[in-house]
Amino acid sequence: MTDGNERVSYATRKRFWGVASGRVVRHLTIALGLVTVLAPIAWLVLTSLKTGQGVFEPRYVPRDPTLEAYRRVLVEAEFWKAVLNSLVVSSVTTVIVVALAVPAGYAFSRFRFPFDDAIFVGVIFSRLFPPIGIIVPYYQGIAALGLLDTRVGIIVAHIYLWLPLMVYIMRNFFLTVPQAVDEAALVDGCTRLQAFRHVVLPLARPGVAAVCILTFLYSWREFLFAFMISETLSAKPIAVAVYSFVGEVTVNWEELAAAAVVAIIPTMLVVVFFQRYVVSGLTAGALRGR
């Protein structure tokens, strides 16, 4: 039975894989991964509960946990304005991107029209193009329109950044809806628009949800364009505002941490509640009809 090449016996290998894929090892691996991800966040939260002096004390758990840092950040530093900016920018961006990406994705998935492939490649290419490459002309354009330091300027940038990807995701979702279903609806008495509304759109609803969530999350965390366009808290979203706690000389760690926690909370809520859609959006096309 012994094979010349078999240095390790079958029994040994079996035992090894039995342990390696066993419950203990598996759980240890998962735990290690979780610690890697969660430890910085835990530290962030703990730091945000400390006082200015407490930050430098050699201990993890704050001696006197306090929300003072949050009060100073949100109220005194008027960080609430940044939260509001972020909410407005992300929501408006999401609404506009979804309103455009859904019909565009449907058109690309169903209709042939002149230069359709070329236009679609253009859409994809604009997504692949490094945004930093156009940041100077974009800045000048926004300046010329008088939109510097406004939410509108940031919203326009965010639409540019996320619309192509969302068109692509929506198209892939619509491709999973068989064309025969559209056709059945047409024969059953629908107009094109009714077929879309009553049959195709409901079937692509997980895709619409995914596009909403992804656009919101991406817009919420976008830094580069928002940083360039906004100067004051009248436009600064959270991602940029957090950075302003890094001073010229010193860093207010507890305030920075408090601001960061505030910035993370909405993202976490979205992921916790809409996990399913986020995953299906990122693997667009893999979703099967139930």
Partner: peptide
């Protein structure tokens, strides 16, 4: 348009509305 023809059709893969 199909809806103006008063025909109905059975498709090869049935094309039922899954939702």
């Amino acid at each position: 348009d199909p809806r103006e023809r008063d025909v109905s059709m059975v498709f090869q893969n049935y094309a039922l509305y899954p939702h």
